[in-house]
Design a protein around this nucleic acid. Structure first.
Lengths: 211, 211, 211, 211
DNA sequence: GATGAATGAGAGTTCATTCAT
DNA sequence: GATGAATGAACTCTCATTCAT
């Protein structure tokens, strides 16, 4: 199974699922985008849903791995939140199509598949909740509600995949920093805000996404 | 043309489009949910896309009207932002299915229809940008970027339609107030935050959505 | 649902399933034979398998009903066997396509459907076994094995649907009588063989198959 | 071309064609059952239809050869019929899958191929007709119709391949004897029935089928 | 106002077969 | 001798839509 063709199929699926949605993308669209006949497509995937699940799983597993690495052995909850925000923003901007699929097409999954994906998503979000909770316990964060704060924060950060364009006026790092700032404001951070270093986040991302 | 049947069709469409997506909803699903045959459905709508457009247009037009009313003659930009956040959160929670359709199915529109809807959305978002810009000019808001702030803020607020449940621990007004707080934090509001009154927002909503 | 169109679909299915087999018959073949588009076909049936099951069920239910009526209150087992043979031969010749489908396409059914149909077939064959067993108990039949005799007898009689042609030299009643003779010979009937009357069998058939 | 692989392919085809039918068996099923890839399959066969024809031809040619040997220089038509019945029953039980394919999948052949196979079948059945006709001429058989008797007799005997199981209570020789009895009864044999010897039939079968 | 009947187009998927390696 | 890759055609079935009644 040619590795590059498989990748082309995957990439075509990400692009089409992201822009037209899973149900709005036909098998023949997929085949054309990948430069194959629709029959050949089936050498490189199971069903259309299998392909969607595979994209989602890979993406979420990487996110979980990165979230763990970026927060482990980081005692300060504000640091942890900042790193999670940066990680999330950077991936949702640089992998914007993929993340849009993950965030937006869960409803297209059959029940059996959905629960697996949702479990992964929950695993990832637990890192956020834990950081927020710790920040509250230590008094360095004062959100009006911990759970609502997590939800609002995640929606704000995920949203970037819906509007980001590399042609915009900001670099990715710029954006990440601004989002960290907004996030801490949103969470009612009490401390003065020192400039956070994105170095460790970049290192983790390179390890997890790089080949 | 029975008014109530027409409303049933519309309501069925909102529910199905919101939960399964436009392309994931078949005409037969729609007919069944409305208690009609699929042929009869066509007495109450044009094409499936017409129905979607109509739902979106109504929803956005109300939002534009309400945003105008809620901000007109309100000099303080923080007040304006607060009212817009409250309006947005209240509608995205109480009309969560409808707003999910508006926010999530724009890509399903054909080019011609999409531009009309996007124009309406832009008209609405202009109220936000104006309030934020004014706040910056006056120094009462210090976001890192005016445009990014608007986008992040809107995503955060719209997100509520994706997770809100009336069974949750908070009342709608509670939620609205918390979101106002988070929004002002996010925007780097410099002033102490007085408790904002939701009264005017409720009045406008009753006028615009009430029947 | 037009009764006559439904019948046309059914008839087309019987003809095609009988001559080409279930798996050898495409939905488009079916539609063409019925004079419909393949989409319209689905107004008159569920799945292709549903259609097959329906044909089989109707046919077997009639056979069971007829077998019951033709043997009830008939004390002499030789009479019962003779009537069953006549009934079977007459139906397998006059409904030769339908019976070929019933006998030959059971393997095409999914497990769930197959068990229902096999239960009907077993119910029908029980009338045969009972008549043969009674004949043996009374000493008027002397087959070498009751079970093998039933199987051999049924295969012999069912076979008629595979070669019968209305253009042949024999009338249906002729054939039925000859088969009764052969059957009694096969079963080792000890009595002299009086000419059996087909009258009651015809009456039952008219009641069960006639409209 | 490995002899054993070729045999494995043939055996897989016999099993699948017999249980699912020709049209119900896919090339991939065949490949999997033979332990090959579907491409490799084509080293051992022509088209799927070629494979079917080859199975049928081999089987029928053996049957014709055996029928000739088993009846040549046998003057008594009852002996000839008895030997044909025994031969047919023994092969249809011990080669039940193969014979099921031969008897049941003729309709799957294209016109050109079908005529060849039908010619072989007719050649085989001629031995039966000749024996029956001779028995009638000599007065030792009294069927009601010579042709109908042949058809009924063959259907009865062939049927064994549809229900025989080696786990059943009878040995093959048992079954063969019982079928001879039933056959002679069916044909209205007038003589007392001496026990027939299966020895010559077994000898011929060993010569024709043995390797 | 309502619907059964109808359909061309297209859905996702599998078909038997070929061929370069 | 074996197979991964490829495909046009076909598969069963559903799509959104129309129209006569």
């Amino acid at each position: 199974m040619s590795q590059t063709t498989a990748r082309r199929v995957r990439q075509a699926a990400i692009e089409l699922f992201a822009t037209r949605g899973f149900h709005g993308t036909g098998i023949r669209d997929l085949a054309e985008a990948a430069g194959l006949s629709s029959a050949t497509l089936y050498h490189y995937m199971g069903t259309k849903e299998d392909l969607l699940v595979s994209i989602m799983r890979t993406s979420l597993e990487r996110l979980v791995t990165a979230a763990k690495q970026v927060t482990s052995d980081v005692p300060d909850p504000l640091d942890r939140v900042s790193r999670l925000v940066a990680l999330h923003v950077l991936t949702h901007a640089s992998q914007q199509l993929e993340t849009r699929v993950v965030d937006g097409e869960i409803r297209a999954l059959s029940d059996a598949r959905r629960s697996e994906i949702i479990a992964l998503r929950d695993e990832y979000e637990a890192f956020w909740q834990s950081a927020i909770d710790d920040g509250c316990s230590r008094g360095s964060l004062r959100p009006s509600s911990r759970r609502v704060a997590r939800l609002a924060l995640l929606e704000m950060c995920s949203g970037i995949s819906r509007w980001y364009s590399p042609d915009g006026p900001f670099t990715l790092d710029d954006l990440a920093c601004r989002y960290v700032e907004m996030a801490l404001g949103l969470l009612g951070a009490t401390d003065p805000l020192p400039k956070r270093e994105l170095g460790p986040v970049h290192a983790v991302m390179a390890a997890v996404w790089g080949d």
